[in-house]
Design a protein around this nucleic acid. Sequence first.
DNA 1: CTGAAAGCGCTTACAG
DNA 2: CTGAAAGCGCTTACAG
Lengths: 344, 344
Amino acid sequence: MKGIRQLAERLNISIGTVSRALNGRPDVNDETRRRVLEAAAEMGYVPNQSGRSLRQGTTNAVGFMIESGFDVAGNPDNFFLGVFDGVQTVLSRHHLDLVVLPCATDEDPTQYLQRMVTRRLVDALIISATHRTDRRIELLNKTHIPFIALGRSATPGNHPWLDLDFEGVANRAIDRLVAKGHRRIAVGVPSNDINLGFVFLDGYKAALARHGIAFEPNLVIRAPSSEQGGYQTAHELLTMPEPATAVVLIYELMAIGFYRRLNESGLSPGRDIAVIAFRESPLSRFLSPALTCFRMSLRDLGITLGESLLASMPAYADIYPQGIVRRVWPMELVEGGSDQAIKG
Amino acid sequence: MKGIRQLAERLNISIGTVSRALNGRPDVNDETRRRVLEAAAEMGYVPNQSGRSLRQGTTNAVGFMIESGFDVAGNPDNFFLGVFDGVQTVLSRHHLDLVVLPCATDEDPTQYLQRMVTRRLVDALIISATHRTDRRIELLNKTHIPFIALGRSATPGNHPWLDLDFEGVANRAIDRLVAKGHRRIAVGVPSNDINLGFVFLDGYKAALARHGIAFEPNLVIRAPSSEQGGYQTAHELLTMPEPATAVVLIYELMAIGFYRRLNESGLSPGRDIAVIAFRESPLSRFLSPALTCFRMSLRDLGITLGESLLASMPAYADIYPQGIVRRVWPMELVEGGSDQAIKG
DNA sequence: CTGAAAGCGCTTACAG
DNA sequence: CTGAAAGCGCTTACAG
């Protein structure tokens, strides 16, 4: 066990001076500092995090909670790994580490989060896949731990959040489809309580209203965010008395199942029914025809997420003076062949 | 700040007794224990992990390192989230938590791991995506922290490991294809140093030898483990002087690109060229024709991974007496239409 | 069965 | 510029 004490003994100085030298305090003789750093490197000494945490009251770690159950479904190409990378870029500037906290499927997310918070495993938290009403937000607001939500929620709070622009997705998709002559436009939305479904649906209704198209509840297909869900969505649409001519899917994974169901009926996406989906992934290019979808930089999203979180922490607020960030993240439309059909 | 001291004051007993009651020590009066537990629940008291860690020398956390760069590629449907779930099932039995440590793409994996180890963030580690020679294994063996590798490696060590049965995949795929009359069977393998590529290739060569088929180096196509890589693989195969009649792909993500390239030439997987891929995912069923591939339970793999890790930790060795586990994980073949072509 | 005390490895006012 | 000492929140021998 190589602690600060061994290091100090070896150099014949006090542990206080070693600590100050290591932590870059200005009140240390240059020569002393040099010797300390040299010896530390040689011994491979790194401060014990528990010792520091206990003394300082901070862990120098930021937690990112993910829920296997909800997050997985719609994210086939590892949405999160891209975001992690961006978050880490920011954290590493301040010698903070990112630890990912995966909540097991058989555990209540709020209880899990509660445990992580009270154990003081991390100084701050990022939560994702927010629900319409989200008890985690309630809990975090009560405990006063700094956090940011990747996703809005109807649960109130003064916390920062970052969310993808699902209104924008709905609006631009509808505008595009209407411009191509479509009037009966369906949407495939999540069947659970995840907040983005609500935002997307509101955007859809607003866009229809702008174009003077009446909202028809039966054109809103609720299905799991999976291939199977996409298959179901296509099946429902095809067996309707008056089928839709276009569809906007919330997850591109659904597009695979959607395409397949169309093919089974001898129909072709893009020719017989227009398809637009959120979000671009490696798959979207390889579908045939390529999927019209929305693109974003996961890394940039992660960077903004990290910076916005730090902005809400007193210790970093002067470096990131943006205050409480509440921001919608824009996305870019990527044209594919899947919505090229011209109607009427 | 609600610490053990506040709890003790409120109950008018010493902090030592509170600690003993909370930790389930037998030498505590039943009534005292009841009062302590009740008050703790009421106050929402949970022991500070830094305090415990510093005193006990353990963190009660197990780390699972993932590398964004390498792990992501071949795992479109979140391989790891399934495994995490199984690992957590095991850890939660012993009040251990799983923390995932994602190594950023711009950081050296060995240095990252070094930092995590010396900081003493976790008591034990799981590493994944092992390379042919893996400096992380060298490091971990040196530091004497308990760990298990998900994947074999040529780097020596007495550590436990668990690995998927890539020889089995190669053998059974080749047997099946040979039985259908194929003799020119290609393989698509990773273009990097990841160990599974070596294991798979060895299995392939051995299987060919068993069937008296000469090994042809140009039938080994090295490509990235992505759709693009699958596309490249198909392209190379189609432009060969004497094309292969069957192919085994190491990642099912490659199959998407492979299918697409075949379609571009008016060829059909399953009819014109037989395709088998490792590993089953939601996608494999939705490809047309469905992909013949290999299935496993990610959760069960995670459970075994967790139990094998604990077996190597002195504190848990009596509960998990399996010793140093070194085990190959079997998989089940799932029939699709992609290898139904009969040659000869 | 309980209390008082030591100590895990650090950081940081406080003297000098 | 440096050292001696206190103390972060726990657990655990050691007395009684």
